[in-house]
Amino acid sequence: MTNTDLFNNLKNLMPGDTRTETVVIQNTSPDYDYVKIYLHAEPVSASASDFLQQLTLSVYNGDELLSSAPANEPGALSEHLNLGTFVYGDATTLSVTVSAPANLKNRYSDTSGEIVWVFTTEAYKDSQPVDADPGLAVNVVPKTSSQPISLVVSNSVSSSHASSTSAQAASDLSRSTAQSVLVLDLNTVPLNPWFIAFLVTLLLAISAACLALIKHKKPTL
C-alpha cells in the first residue's frame, strides 16, 4: 500500500468477492471561494493489466455512476471527469466497487495491480461560482500570491454507498480522517498554460481586427 492509496478496503480479494471503498473529498480551503475538482485514471501498466482485466471496477459520485469497466481500463475516467464545484466545506463521496469473478484462476492469487487516479483541482477567487466548462470561466480575479488549496481526500470504508449529502459526507470524514488524508498543495503550481495561450490568441485576434479597421479607408466622393 502506498501513502496515497485510497483503496484500503480493496485488499486481499477472493474469487466471488464484491467490495466497496468510499472516498470522501472535501474542500477545506478557506482561501478560495470555490474549487473545481476533476478525476481521471491513467493507463495501467502492462504487467498489471492481465490481472486487473479480470476485475470489474465501478465508480459512483454519490448516486451517479461515473464509470463501470474492467479494472485495467480507465473507462469514462480516461477523460477528466468533473466531480463538481465545491465551496468551502462542501464534500462529495466517491464509491468504488470492485468485483472479482467466482472463477478467478489460481494464478491470480497473491497478486496486486495498481490503478493511478489523478485529482485535478482548480481554485477560484469569485464570490459566485460558475458552472462553466473547464477553461471557460470568466470574471475570476487571479490571486497575486498563491496559497495552498486545502483539499482533503479520505477513506471511509463501507459496504454500501454512503449518502452524498454534505452532512453525511462531513460525518464520514470526521470518522476516517486518520486513515488516509491527502492535501493538495498549490504553492508551486503555475497558471493553466492552456488559458494563457487562449488569452494571447484572443488578444492577437482582436488587435488584428482593430488594425484592419483603422487602415480601411472608404472611397471619398
Binding site: 500500500m1 502506498t2 496515497t4 492509496d5 485510497l6 483503496f7 480493496l10 485488499k11 478560495y32 491513467e42 496486486s112 495491480g113 495498481e114 490503478i115 493511478v116 487516479w117 489523478v118 485529482f119 485535478t120 483541482t121 482548480e122 481554485a123 477560484y124 477567487k125 477553461g135 471557460l136 470561466a137 470568466v138 475570476v140 487571479p142 490571486k143 498563491s146 488549496i149 483539499l151 481526500v153 491527502l182 493538495l184 498543495d185 498549490l186 503550481v189 497558471l191 493553466n192 488559458f195 494563457i196 487562449f198 488569452l199
Partner: peptide, 13 residues
Amino acid sequence: VAYFVTTQPTHNL
C-alpha cells in the same frame, strides 16, 4: 480567466 490549478496522483492497489 486566470485561476490556479494543481494535480495530485493517487496510487491505489
